[in-house]
Computed example of a mutant assay.
Amino acid sequence: MSDLFDAVDALLARPDVMPPPEVRARLRKADGLRQDEVAAVFGVTRVAFHRWETGAAKPRRRHLEAYVRLLNGWAEKHPEAAHGPQQVHEAGEKH
């Protein structure tokens, strides 16, 4: 069973997997940052960063791992933003 868990952990640790675009923006906003502020850290234009965030473009290798690291850090810091609004089921129960 440990081999299976190791394989799952390897999948979870992939450095190039980003959350969906709508989650990326939500995470950034939860941290109170504007696109131009994050773009400046990466040394790219706001337009280039906007394309990453919306999924219109993927960061190049030198930025990809750092951007995924940032997204993962925000997700840990703001779990509510990472998972989005809770869904309400018929019985009114939140999940």
Rank of each mutant, 00 (worst) to 15 (best):
Q35A: 08
P19Q: 02
R24W: 07
H50N: 05
Y67I: 05
W74P: 04
R51L: 05
H63E: 12
K58D: 13
V41R: 15
W52T: 01
A10P: 00
Q35N: 03
A75D: 02
Y67M: 10
R34N: 03
L71S: 03
E93S: 11
E53V: 01
R24K: 14
V38E: 10
A40E: 15
R61N: 03
N72S: 12
W74H: 08
E37T: 07
A57S: 14
L70R: 15
A13R: 06
E76K: 11
Q86V: 13
L4Q: 14
R34S: 04
R26M: 05
V8Q: 12
F5R: 12
R26H: 01
D9A: 15
H89R: 14
A57Y: 01
K29Y: 05
L70E: 13
R51Y: 06
L64M: 10
E93I: 15
A91L: 05
G92L: 03
H83P: 00
V17C: 02
V44T: 08
R26P: 02
E22H: 12
P85T: 12
V68H: 01
R24D: 09
D9F: 08
H89D: 14
P19H: 05
D3L: 06
A56I: 14
R62G: 01
P59H: 06
P15G: 13
R24M: 14
E76A: 10
V8H: 09
A81D: 06
A81S: 10
E93W: 14
P79E: 03
G32S: 04
A81K: 07
A39L: 01
L33P: 00
A66V: 11
E90Y: 04
K94Y: 06
E53I: 00
G84E: 11
F49Q: 14
V38L: 14
H78Y: 15
D6S: 06
R24Q: 15
A7R: 15
R34D: 04
S2P: 06
L64F: 04
G84R: 11
A48I: 07
G92A: 03
G43V: 11
G92M: 03
N72A: 12
A40L: 14
A81G: 05
